[in-house]
Design a protein around this nucleic acid. Sequence first.
DNA 1: AACGCCTTCAACCGCAATTCG
DNA 2: CCGAATTGCGGTTGAAGGCGT
Length: 281
Amino acid sequence: MESIRRNVIRSCNNNDDNAAESEVRRGPWTIEEDTLLIHYIACHGEGHWNNLAKYSGLKRTGKSCRLRWLNYLKPDIKRGNLTPQEQLLILELHSKWGNRWSKIAQQLPGRTDNEIKNYWRTRVEKQAKQLKMESNSQKFLETVHHLWIPRLLQKMDQKPSSSTSSNYNPPSSEEALFQKPCGSSSSEPTIEANQSSILSCGGYYQWPESSESVSEEAGNNCDVQPLNNNGDFLQVDQLQLQLQHPFSFLGAACGGAEFDGQMAASDWVLEDDVAERFWNF
DNA sequence: AACGCCTTCAACCGCAATTCG
DNA sequence: CCGAATTGCGGTTGAAGGCGT
């Protein structure tokens, strides 16, 4: 009860986006709010978030609506653990681009910048901390390339199917859309109940069949270097090839000159227990 | 069962970049 | 060109659930 009361904040800050004059809801979204948002977007399309907030009946800021849609409700959002392939890509891209989460997310169809950022902070940085390294340090990068990535590749080889994470079954776009938020209690009405009404809205919005739009965006972004010559995502064997020269792409991001991509594997020294601890994480 | 600590991740915030009138 | 509005991004926070004692 208290939390509900807390979620409704009297707006006393005129600069707070276009917050409604009276009150703005904050905190976790309810099924009803999600339904309203989905319904509105199905009928009117994405964008114009402040108008959406104003006219949809949601007592949320435009910002909040946008975030909820992009990070959670959008049909092509993937749920579940990151696959080894995705983890590998994140490690690769982060070493290349740093904390450019949205840019990295563009290369991972169905994954959001928020998700990747959380992954980095909760898993990668934690690991770096345990090893008493800075997650953006040269030493940690080396550790990642010599221990983590080879292990990920090994894991990918062991489970060659596309769905390699332990509990991740890629949902269809509609499954993704209507998947129940993990925080909601089982007694609450599920969003599926609203599916037919949403889909029968008659609006122009069509649920995408795949993550096409994401790939397209990535392809159109001239700033993003294609991951292979065809502009496709690297396949496992391509990544393995690249890893024969694992530091080739580090370049400027890692201080360039003082790091030699030809570094021999034998130069790499890590105590066994550290290596083991690293992988066990 | 109860408690406290830890981890995860959805959501918020402030600022920067972009778009619009 | 300029200022306001909107959108996007990255950092941070805190609620909720898991887990050990």
